[in-house]
Amino acid sequence: MLSPFKEGFNSPFPARIPASVFHPQSLFSSGGVLLDFAVPNLFQDAAGQVPVIDPGDPVGRVLDGRGSTVFVAPSDAARPTYTGGGLSFDGVDDMLTAPAQVVREVFMVVSGMSGGTGADGVYPLFSEATVNRNYVHVINDRRISLDGTTSTAGAAAVGLAPYEPGTLDGENITLSSGNMLSDTPVIISVVIPNGVEMANIGYLRASNTDYRNHFNLHHLIAFADQISDEDREQVIRYLADKTGAAL
């Protein structure tokens, strides 16, 4: 016999909450960054007077989706370009910077990496204001996971370096070009137990050299504290749904 009740409608059984209802905003307790590059949060100038409207517009100011952080380009020449689905950094002088804040878990969706200025094969994603060390990189076929602590006390960067260990006074691991050099978005999951002060996007300074990265950034979520395994999987699925990145 069929029940006279519909689930969730005058029913003793609660309605199921679809996965699409989840939003990472619910996981923030203190601090952190949420950049989805929605047009209302983008401006062509650092002062926030000229809104971004169309793909191809330069981006000089990005508002955090939580209303707590503002990233700006340090000069007009350093402005990345709005693509319609994120920002494109040219690998020459593009970067964004914000007041540093400690983060311990970061998710980024990137595509189209093809190097940049500074030295062969350095792909900075984000860094502290002054960088001396890189993180250890662990890579798998479908998703790139960076997990480690700085090799010594001091500033740090998170990025990709597809060449021998030891460069930049840190430890690097060989990068499969099939993962990062394609136009298909890839989810990068970063766990930093001791925390790192996020200040720059697309830029790092190490060994008295400036490094920049040519890449597309589609989404960035950074938490002040590590989140649970279950919540981590929800964030990854959310980003895959939003950006088309492969799981």
Results as ranks from 00 to 15, higher is better:
111 S>P: 08
122 V>Y: 14
155 A>K: 12
231 D>V: 03
87 L>T: 02
227 I>N: 15
99 P>T: 10
163 Y>V: 13
84 G>A: 04
141 D>I: 02
161 A>H: 15
193 P>I: 11
193 P>T: 12
155 A>F: 15
174 T>S: 08
75 S>G: 14
199 A>L: 10
161 A>S: 13
218 H>M: 02
4 P>E: 06
124 P>A: 11
56 G>Y: 08
7 E>Q: 00
198 M>R: 01
102 V>N: 10
147 D>I: 15
175 L>I: 05
193 P>E: 01
43 F>V: 15
202 G>S: 12
235 V>R: 03
162 P>L: 02
25 Q>T: 08
16 R>K: 06
30 S>A: 14
225 D>F: 14
233 E>Y: 03
5 F>A: 15
235 V>A: 06
48 G>I: 09
65 G>M: 06
166 G>L: 14
64 D>Q: 12
243 T>S: 02
128 E>P: 05
226 Q>G: 11
14 P>N: 05
91 G>Q: 10
170 G>Y: 06
164 E>M: 07
224 A>F: 12
174 T>W: 09
175 L>A: 12
188 I>T: 04
169 D>F: 05
138 V>R: 11
127 S>K: 09
33 V>C: 04
95 M>W: 08
171 E>G: 13
232 R>A: 07
14 P>C: 06
144 I>R: 04
195 G>A: 07
73 A>V: 15
133 R>L: 10
168 L>S: 03
116 G>C: 09
54 D>V: 00
187 I>W: 01
138 V>Q: 12
92 V>K: 15
117 T>L: 04
138 V>H: 01
24 P>H: 04
135 Y>F: 09
47 A>K: 13
39 V>L: 06
229 D>G: 09
118 G>I: 05
90 D>G: 14
207 S>G: 01
229 D>H: 13
30 S>D: 07
25 Q>F: 07
152 T>C: 14
77 A>W: 06
